[in-house]
């Protein structure tokens, strides 16, 4: 009989959502690699809890698979923080190169100790800044603007380093807070701007590419070990194929979404040169070096110089 695999993620099951795209790409690739062997059940929209719980759930073996944001994994394996360093990856290709290479695979391998099988890094797209004060094109533009940031020390330090005003705020309150002017803006990947209709309440979209959002396709070791060798191989093959598929679909979606947001009235500017930003955030790199581990850090820095 077909093996049931429950896969969870926290965003909606929409055709523009990187997590949903990833889950469906994996299902397609798996059906191709092992026709009829698996019955994949989708649990979008935080149905099985937030990412912290799903990650723990994989460890306890109460959930089969999940797509989890890098920053959340870093709370369990600090080395993952390296991916969230601001202005680290210059573009998608560079990120793919590092994440598919020894560094990325080394990170995923660390999860074995947590009883989790890391199948690969998909992408949520670069995170950018949106706000209602001014377009951001150089570090000084960030100063004095109240940006909501993810509750994550790297992001908080990054905005402090840029002289901005980082406001950690629960996601549920952010939309109204921007609308009412409680905060000026936030940092966010493009698909989320569209999905959550932030174009209705924020004016400037600055493509700052400040953080590459890696999202990991993970499986519970308990589920993985139950599988036959053939099925394990099928899962691995499907995962690597799904990663490629997901990345190219997300790229297409993003491009379309940026023009759509522009046509809906957002003022979009591209930050061509991110070097001054990277210079400004050097203290952040130093701050987290120890927690990330010198070896991982140096390997990534060398690959992204």
């Amino acid at each position: 009989a077909a093996e049931t695999l429950k896969i969870g993620w926290t965003t909606s099951d929409s055709p523009n959502d990187p997590y949903a795209i990833g889950a469906h790409a994996f299902a397609e690739a798996l059906e191709e690699a092992a026709p009829g062997r698996f019955d994949i059940r989708f649990f979008p929209s935080r149905q099985l809890g937030d990412e912290k719980e799903m990650l723990e759930g994989l460890k306890f073996g109460v959930l089969d698979m999940a797509i989890i944001t890098n920053a959340v994994i870093a709370n369990v394996e600090p080395a993952f923080m390296v991916n969230d360093l601001p202005f680290l990856y210059a573009d998608e290709d560079q990120a793919h190169h590092v994440l598919d290479g020894p560094v990325g695979q080394g990170l995923l391998a660390r999860l074995e100790g947590d009883k989790i099988v890391g199948l690969g890094f998909m992408e949520g797209g670069f995170r950018h800044m949106i706000n209602n004060v001014r377009p951001v094109s150089q570090p000084a533009d960030v100063a004095g603007v109240k940006f909501r940031v993810m509750q994550n020390p790297v992001f908080i330090s990054m905005f402090s380093a840029l002289g901005g005003n980082a406001v950690p705020m629960a996601w549920g309150e952010v939309f109204t807070a921007v609308q009412q002017g409680t905060i000026d803006g936030l940092e966010i990947p493009v698909p989320v701007i569209a999905a959550a209709k932030y174009d209705e309440v924020t004016h400037y979209l600055s493509l700052t590419r400040h953080t590459y959002s890696a999202i990991a396709l993970l499986m519970a070791q308990r589920t993985f070990k139950k599988l036959s060798d053939d099925d394990e191989a099928a899962i691995r093959t499907a995962a690597s194929k799904a990663v490629d598929l997901q990345r190219s679909r997300v790229a297409a979606v993003q491009q379309a979404l940026v023009s759509e947001l522009e046509s809906r009235g957002m003022a979009v500017n591209v930050v061509e040169n991110t070097k001054p930003f990277r210079q400004a955030v050097t203290p952040v790199y130093d701050e987290f070096r120890d927690r990330i581990g010198a070896e991982t850090m140096d390997a990534v820095l060398e690959a992204t110089q």
Binding site: V72, N75, Q151, N152, P168
Partner: peptide, 15 residues
């Protein structure tokens, strides 16, 4: 015991 070593999201206090 299973989550020892994990830290909170913002402050990083031991979970």
């Amino acid at each position: 015991t299973e989550t020892l070593g994990q830290v909170s999201a913002a402050v990083g206090y031991p979970i």
